[in-house]
Computed example of a mutant assay.
Amino acid sequence: MKNAIIYVPGKGGSAKEAEYYRKFFNDGFDIIGFNYKSEKPWDAKVEFSNYFDSLISKYNKIMLIANSLGAYFSLISLADKKIKKAMLISPIVDMERLILDMMISENVSKEELRIKKEIETSFGEILSWEYLTYVIKDTINWNIPTEVLYGEKDTMTSIDTINNFVKKTNTNLTIMSGGEHWFHTKEQMEFLDKWFKSNI
């Protein structure tokens, strides 16, 4: 029975990005990009759970690689799945904090959001009362062996937030000095490759 690598892209990413990771594995691995449709966490919980359930019986071992929002959806959906290891790149690990930070930057109070239900931000994101109240109640409980790659200059997740997550979930953290949320430059991709090779 083969092993599988499941790649979950971030928002606006593509399942085709999974091909990047083929170079790290031999022919005994299927590399699968998960082209999920969910935009809300409650939808992701159903979609992600069903998708992984459909694959688990077909493979000996499954490794998860997840990026940004894809990592957040994985964290809230897959904690009880038979995943041997997870590799998380720039994961969103505290959605409540991220939304509250966006509200502060847009000068939107909780009361205003509660009344209006949805508010469009100056940077194109929609603040949603339903989304915020859901993520406040829906905490992450994760105990799968996990490696986290984080860029020092990540503007989505603060160093304190990532450190809190790492302590709570007993995961291993690697920080790239000067790295960003989106790993894309030659130097950043070389760092990612080294991190990945030494931790799989």
Rank of each mutant, 00 (worst) to 15 (best):
E187D: 10
G124N: 05
K116C: 02
T157V: 15
E190V: 03
L127S: 07
W129Y: 13
I136W: 02
T139K: 11
E118Q: 10
K137F: 07
H181L: 03
S122D: 11
I140Y: 09
M176T: 00
K168W: 06
F123N: 09
E187C: 05
M156P: 02
S122V: 04
W129S: 09
L173H: 03
T185F: 06
K117S: 01
Y134F: 10
F183W: 06
Y131V: 00
W142F: 14
E187S: 10
I126V: 12
E147A: 14
D154Y: 01
G124V: 05
E147H: 08
V135S: 02
K186W: 13
Y134D: 01
H184Q: 12
N172S: 14
F191Y: 14
I162N: 06
V135K: 12
P145H: 07
T146V: 12
I144N: 03
N141F: 10
F183I: 14
G151A: 00
F191P: 00
I162T: 03
E118A: 04
T139N: 06
K117T: 00
T171A: 01
E190K: 12
Q188H: 10
H181A: 06
Y131F: 12
H184G: 14
D160A: 04
W182E: 12
K186F: 14
G179P: 01
Y150M: 03
I140P: 12
F183L: 06
